[in-house]
Simulated assay, not measured.
Amino acid sequence: MAASSLFALIDDIATLLDDVALLSKAAAKQTTGVLGDDLALNAQQVSGVAAERELPVVWAVAKGSARNKAILVPGALAISAWAPWAVTPLLMVGGTYLCFEGFEKIAHKLLHSAAEDADEQQALRSAAMASEQDLLAFERDKIKGAIRTDFVLSAEIIAITLGTVAAATFAKQLMVLSGIAVLMTIGVYGLVAAIVKLDDVGLFLSRSKKAMVRALGLGMVSMAPGLMRTLTVVGTIAMFLVGGGILNHGLPQLHGLAPALAAQMGPASALAGLAVDGLVGLAAGAIAVAVFTLGQRLWRLAKGQV
Rank of each mutant, 00 (worst) to 15 (best):
K142R: 13
V165F: 03
V201L: 14
F204T: 10
S154W: 00
S131W: 07
I160S: 11
A159D: 10
A193R: 01
G145M: 08
V196N: 08
G190T: 10
R207H: 15
A146W: 05
Q122A: 11
V196E: 08
V176R: 03
V188Q: 05
D199V: 09
L153P: 01
S206P: 06
G187E: 02
G190I: 08
T185E: 06
K172E: 15
I157L: 07
G163K: 01
M129N: 15
L191H: 00
M175Q: 04
K142H: 01
R207T: 11
V165W: 01
D141R: 13
G179I: 05
L177H: 01
M184E: 13
K142F: 02
I186W: 13
S131L: 02
Q133A: 10
L203G: 05
I180C: 06
T161C: 14
F170V: 15
V188N: 13
V176D: 00
H108N: 11
S113V: 09
I158P: 02
F204I: 04
G163V: 06
M175T: 11
E139F: 00
V165I: 08
A167V: 07
M129S: 13
A194H: 03
D119K: 14
M184R: 04
V196M: 05
T149H: 00
D119P: 06
L203M: 12
H108W: 12
L136D: 13
D199S: 14
A123T: 10
L183K: 08
E139Y: 03
I160A: 14
M129A: 11
V165A: 09
R207L: 12
D117M: 07
I180E: 03
L110Y: 00
E132T: 09
G190L: 02
R125N: 04
D119T: 07
A193K: 03
H108E: 08
A167T: 12
I157H: 03
R125G: 10
E139L: 06
L174F: 03
E116K: 09
I195F: 11
A146C: 04
D141N: 15
L153I: 08
A193P: 00
V165S: 11
E116I: 03
A115C: 04
G202H: 06
K172I: 07
D117P: 02
T164R: 08
S178N: 04
R148I: 08
L198M: 15
G202Y: 02
T161I: 10
T185W: 07
K109N: 15
L162M: 14
T149A: 14
Q173A: 05
Q122V: 05
A166P: 11
E139R: 04
A167W: 09
I157G: 08
